[in-house]
């Protein structure tokens, strides 16, 4: 039966690779920078870090670094090109936010809508410390 299995596997391979190729038309990223790193490792690191904080537009729950979607690939290419041109990561982030709003960045900025995100942790921490000091205080003056 081994020959049968091998035969079927080869057949499946043929069918599957055909599917891959036909996908390839739509899925194949056009720009090599979608997948290939920048020559300058420092710039590539910047680009990678940035890609992990930009949200894929079509998959919704992933960063463009983690997504296999074609659109995410195109966004990676833009990030690499801009970084290569010498843009700072925050400039590139701003470029995307100007087009898609705060939603596109996993890193909330300080804005009218997001300041509580940065203030609340401090409030909670100080509230907690306040409550805890009371637990200790009473012991000192019994």
């Amino acid at each position: 039966m081994t020959w049968l299995k091998t035969g079927l596997a080869l057949l499946a391979f043929a069918v599957f690779s055909f599917q891959l190729i036909s996908y390839g038309v739509a899925e194949q990223p056009y720009d090599p920078y979608a997948e290939q790193p920048l020559k300058n490792p420092a710039q590539e690191n910047q680009a990678q870090d940035l890609m992990h904080t930009l949200r894929c537009l079509v998959c919704q729950g992933q960063s463009i670094a983690d997504s296999n979607a074609a659109m995410a690939a195109d966004m990676r290419a833009i990030v690499r090109h801009d970084i290569e041109k010498g843009w700072s990561p925050e400039q590139v982030r701003r470029w995307f936010i100007d087009r898609y709003g705060d939603w596109v960045s996993y890193k909330p900025t300080w804005s009218k809508r997001s300041w509580p995100l940065w203030i609340l942790p401090l409030v909670i921490l100080s509230g907690g410390i306040f409550l805890i000091t009371r637990l200790f205080k009473r012991e000192e003056k019994p």
Binding site: H52, T53, R55, S63, G101, D102, W103, V104, S105, Y106, K107, P108, R113, S114, L117
Partner: peptide
């Protein structure tokens, strides 16, 4: 809900 505009909070935060 408040502003009608979406915002993301993810790993960097």
């Amino acid at each position: 809900l408040i502003s009608g505009e979406k915002l993301s909070v993810g790993a960097p935060y």
